[in-house]
Amino acid sequence: MTATALKPTNRNDTWQPLCTRADLVAFSGVAAWLTTSAGPAQVALFYLPGHAQELYALDHFDPFSKAYVIARGIVGDIKGSPVVASPIYKQHFRLEDGQCLEEDEVQLRTWRVAFKGDEVWVEG
Rank of each mutant, 00 (worst) to 15 (best):
V113W: 01
L108F: 06
L95M: 04
T4L: 12
F64Q: 15
F115Q: 02
F61K: 06
A32N: 02
E103H: 14
Q99V: 12
A3L: 03
T2C: 02
A52N: 07
E123I: 00
Y47Q: 09
G39I: 02
R11M: 06
D77K: 08
G124T: 03
V30Q: 09
M1K: 00
A85P: 07
H60D: 15
L108R: 13
L101R: 13
W111R: 09
A32W: 00
L95T: 11
L58D: 04
Y56K: 01
D59K: 05
G98F: 01
A114S: 15
L18A: 00
E105W: 10
L45T: 01
Q42P: 05
G29M: 02
F93E: 05
P63G: 12
L95G: 04
A57Y: 03
N10W: 13
R94L: 10
V83P: 13
G98P: 06
D59H: 07
V84Y: 06
S28K: 03
P87G: 09
A32P: 02
T20E: 10
A3R: 06
G124K: 05
E96Y: 06
A57N: 06
V25G: 01
P82H: 10
R112A: 05
K79G: 12
D13R: 15
A5K: 09
T2P: 03
F115K: 04
E103I: 10
C19N: 03
R94M: 13
P17I: 03
K79Q: 13
D62T: 14
W15M: 05
